[in-house]
Amino acid sequence: MNIIKLDAINSTNDYLKGLLQRQFVENFTIVTAENQTDGKGQMGSKWSVQAGKNLTFSVLVKDLLLEVNHIFHLNVAVAVSIIEALSFLEIKELAIKWPNDILAGGKKIGGILIENSLKSDGEIFSIIGIGINVNQQNFENLPKASSLSILLKREINKEAVLISIVECLTRNVSLILNKNTDSLWEKYHSCLYKKGIPMPFENLKGNKFMGIISGVDQSGKLQLVVEDDSVESYEIKEIKMLY
């Protein structure tokens, strides 16, 4: 396992992308940073954490041959891998909040950002950015955030969590390569936050409505049963859950 450890960097995703442009980088290379000054979340949002207290890292996954509409298989594998790794710590009430937040007890403890590059031969290079709140204790003005140490009431070994996540990811990516993704999707849906429960949502126009999450389709769209019992599909950022 090739791990590049940095004290401070603007973004581990950007660092890994730059490295790929300059040299050969082996599959599952990991870049970690004690302090990430310009961490990114979905759709350009910021991911800000306390220096030295949390896990911020990126993993290169390449040699994947997937149809474009099946790229979300990797998102599923990453989210499930984090759930599996954190389950070993006996974290309770773990859930995946669509599309890429990791929750415990209804509070956010992690997030995922995957940046894909598709080559002409169908090969996909993916840089997987993962942030996990590990030992941070104070989340001022972030009432929906928590950390592993808050939940377990003890200091957590960050590197052990990192290794566990990447080991789970390596195993689950092999399932994708072997076209055996049913078990990944089953676990993903079993961990999907608020699945099957009526919840309020808001669309891009600011309109609020009730819906029930029935699942996520193969392309990553959220499937909602709405008030007339029809099923509507939503892309990332087209709606938000009001919780």
Rank of each mutant, 00 (worst) to 15 (best):
G196I: 08
F201N: 07
F201R: 06
N207K: 15
S190V: 09
G211A: 03
K205W: 02
H189Q: 12
L175F: 11
I176R: 01
P198V: 10
F201S: 04
K195R: 14
D182W: 00
Y193P: 08
L175M: 12
K194N: 08
T181Y: 06
I176P: 07
G206F: 10
L204D: 03
V173K: 13
P198C: 03
K179T: 13
L175S: 10
Y188C: 10
L192T: 05
P200G: 01
K195F: 01
C191E: 06
K179D: 10
Y193S: 14
S174T: 03
I197C: 01
S183V: 15
N178P: 00
M199A: 14
S190P: 07
N172M: 05
N203I: 13
V173M: 07
V173G: 04
K195L: 10
L177S: 06
F201W: 14
W185Y: 15
L192C: 09
N178C: 02
M210L: 12
L175Y: 07
H189P: 06
S183E: 11
L175Q: 11
L192Q: 06
P198D: 04
N207W: 00
N172Q: 02
K195M: 06
L177C: 10
M199I: 09
L177T: 09
K194G: 03
N207D: 15
S183A: 08
E186N: 13
G211Y: 01
F209P: 15
E186Q: 15
K187L: 09
M210F: 03
T181L: 02
T181D: 07
I197R: 04
K194S: 02
C191V: 05
L177V: 13
K187H: 11
G196K: 01
G196M: 03
I176T: 03
E186T: 13
M199G: 03
Y188D: 10
W185F: 15
I176W: 00
K208A: 01
S183Y: 00
S183T: 14
Y193G: 06
S190C: 05
K194I: 01
E186I: 10
I197K: 11
V173W: 02
Y193I: 10
G206I: 06
M210W: 10
P200H: 06
